[in-house]
Design a protein around this nucleic acid. Structure first.
Lengths: 189, 189
DNA sequence: AACGTAACACTAACGGTTAGTGTTTTGGAA
DNA sequence: TTCCAAAACACTAACCGTTAGTGTTACGTT
């Protein structure tokens, strides 16, 4: 078990990165639906099978780094101060996530996502996964008196807040407005 | 513009029905993922292209009649008595829908859906469509003082209630529990 | 130096979906 | 009745994402 360094792992990471960079560049240049997997593989100078050993699907090339989101949400629950109320902690995290993906740097990427049905559907199914892992974290929290159904409901409402805010004219304002509703729902549970 | 009946339309409907019936039978016999489009087309004695002129995708063969759901939800909003409060009307409708799809007759179909990733994802993206059309109906209702964002949020919450209740141990009870939360959220908006 | 394995390559295919190109059927107009 | 335009259907061939099968390097380990 030699620890981190190792030429092999560096090469693997480099290949993965090269594929992701090439894919994103081509997608932004020509449009997601106009670029085939074979195009990406050829331009990145790897075999198609190599590409699929690094990424599970064509869509995954776009959402390369979004396991982060999943972890950040569950950690907003598990790592919060013992006396910090739950919903505001979640609201803070959603605020940060919305801010991140409405930033100027991310704008072209999210425009591309909106333009492709395949990417929109993939993103939504990703969010479902996030909701489920958030739900698991909530159900497991011994400090919450609410029922499991209420926890699962809250998880979906929080993910809805993210999705709705991203499409709103004023994303940050929408987060606050929706969280007023979420807070009331959670209090009633 | 001669009105409805006409041999052509009857034949078309018959072809469509034969395809749907054949598909559902094969899927239940052998499993959704084990049956190819070419199998369905051959068994229904039509060309593959004909099949796709009646159904937009393989998954659509399973959810043949689910435009109804979409209409029922929007009509629960638009057709309710002038003085009937909104959320209870929606709750009644969700109750009915959950009851329908947990009935004995539908059980094998929904078991099949749960077993196939492709079908689960398709169903979820269908629900998104339903949420959007419900949101449109809500936003258009002049009797509602709430903001457009609040309306869209309610729409998603209602669809969540359906999805969560279907997976719950006690679906009918879950609908009531979740709608307590939805009611509170709507009141806070 | 030699071995085991992870990364990668290549070919070929599978399954859903569509384009292109007819052919038949049918409802309605002349 | 006859004829036309459109709709429904068929057929071939292909596209595209994805995977299986089968090697071939390149690296870390012993």
């Amino acid at each position: 078990m030699t620890v981190p360094t190792g030429r092999r792992e560096r090469k693997k990471a480099a290949t993965r990165q090269k594929i992701a960079d090439t894919a994103l560049r081509l997608f932004l240049e020509r449009g997601y639906d106009e670029v085939g997997i074979r195009d990406v593989a050829a331009e990145a100078d790897v075999a198609v099978t190599t590409l699929f050993s690094h990424f599970a699907s064509k869509e995954a090339l776009v959402f390369e780094r979004d396991d982060d989101f999943e972890q950040r949400l569950t950690r907003a629950v598990t790592d919060r101060a013992p006396d910090e109320p739950l919903v505001p902690a979640l609201r803070r995290e959603i605020h940060a996530m919305v801010l991140h993906c409405t930033a100027d740097g991310s704008a072209p990427i999210y425009r591309m996502i909106d333009e492709s049905r395949a990417l929109r559907e993939y993103e939504e199914s990703m969010r479902l996964r996030h909701a489920e892992s958030l739900a698991t974290a909530l159900v497991a929290d011994p400090g919450l008196p609410q029922s499991a159904t209420a926890c699962r409901t809250l998880a979906r409402f929080v993910i809805d807040a993210y999705a709705l805010a991203r499409d709103a004219a004023d994303p940050q304002g929408a987060v606050d407005e929706i969280f007023t509703m979420v807070e009331a729902a959670w209090a009633a549970a």
